[in-house]
């Protein structure tokens, strides 16, 4: 083989590819996903989201998906999504196509999707099947970090052709957090904050790399997970009741999957170890909805969490 033969062939191939891409550019966008470049249609009409963050981003971009997965520990979409849909799209009700770890492929197929927004870390086998139904967008895997949701929301926005709307939604969250930081500083609210899920055997301490933890930190509070969560985990193992003092921050956000957070707080209060916490004695325990705080993500979830923080901390 002569030294020049191979490059020439490659150039020809490249030209052909470019030509094809140019011919389709009016109809399609190519996205960089975890499974390489994926071409999506310009104005997808039948969107199925297989991830709470994708559902949130789609709604923030003004697209109501036809199908979605349930929230953690629930039978349907998260409560804050329900509220949003009731307010903005009272007639829309995304069909449930499974839970995030167990997608019902037939239910996805029944929606005849033209775009599937999938979670990061979708199993390869699942991708192989889903990508045959419709272009499937899987965000590239990143190490667990509190602002992963922004990258993901941007990618979903590109896939939906709603980049501008999502940029605006993300910017709005950042502005709101900044405003809340100033308001909290004016009200002289400051200090350390922890986020736990209460179990009778002991709390699960949520990582500082979680979505909600990042929002707490973004409002000027110091988020602490007591060095109890390893780099990859989203929460600690059930902490021994003997070690509760490790999460005894100035503010304790208590996430619960119970319908009624107050009820969970009362359950926790039956534990003498919980009663001894400084945050409990100072009445600085804030029960919050675990679906929103420890399962959801996206710009709408961020606004809802900032609502919770504002209501709890601003006098």
């Amino acid at each position: 083989m002569s030294p020049s033969a191979f490059p020439r062939r490659r150039v020809a191939g490249l030209a052909l590819l470019l030509g094809l891409a140019a011919a389709q550019s009016a109809l399609a966008t190519t996205l960089e996903t975890a499974h390489g470049p994926v071409e999506v249609g310009d104005d997808p009409q039948r969107v199925v989201t297989l991830y709470e963050g994708a559902l949130d981003a789609a709604l923030a971009g003004g697209v109501v998906p036809l199908g979605a997965v349930t929230t953690r520990g629930g039978d349907g979409v998260a409560g804050y999504i329900d509220d949003y849909l009731d307010a903005r799209h009272p007639d829309a009700e995304p069909a449930i196509v499974g839970v995030v770890r167990e997608i019902n492929l037939e239910a996805v197929l029944a929606q005849r999707p033209d775009l599937i927004l999938a979670p990061p870390q979708l199993a390869d086998e699942q991708y192989a099947l889903l990508s045959r139904l419709a272009p499937t967008v899987v965000p590239p895997t990143r190490p667990l970090a509190a602002d992963n949701w922004k990258h993901e929301a941007r990618l979903y926005g590109q896939a939906l052709g709603r980049e501008a709307q999502l940029e605006a939604a993300i910017a709005a969250v950042e502005e709101r957090a900044q405003a809340l930081t100033e308001a909290l500083a004016d009200a002289e609210v400051s200090g350390e904050v922890s986020l736990v899920r209460w179990m009778p055997q002991g709390p699960l301490v949520m990582s500082e790399r979680l979505f909600a933890s990042g929002l707490l930190a973004a409002t000027g509070l110091t988020f602490s997970d007591g060095d109890l969560v390893n780099d990859r985990g989203v929460h600690s193992d059930p902490l021994s009741l003997e070690n509760l003092s490790r999460v005894d921050s100035d503010w304790l956000f208590l996430a619960t999957l119970n319908a009624d957070g107050q009820e969970a707080l009362e359950a926790a209060r039956t534990s003498p170890a919980f009663e001894r916490l400084e945050a409990v004695a100072n009445d600085r325990v804030v029960p919050v909805d675990g679906q929103l705080w420890t399962s959801a993500n996206g710009p709408l979830a961020a606004q809802a969490i900032l609502d919770d923080i504002e209501a709890a901390l601003l006098p």
Binding site: G73, G74, D75, M199, P238, L241, L257, P272, A273
Partner: peptide
């Protein structure tokens, strides 16, 4: 009932922690 599940999942494993 997924919500009840989270409450009793740890109880179903068996433990002495937090017993009074």
């Amino acid at each position: 009932d997924q919500r009840a599940a989270d409450e009793i999942r740890f109880w179903v494993i068996g433990s002495l922690s937090g017993r009074r």
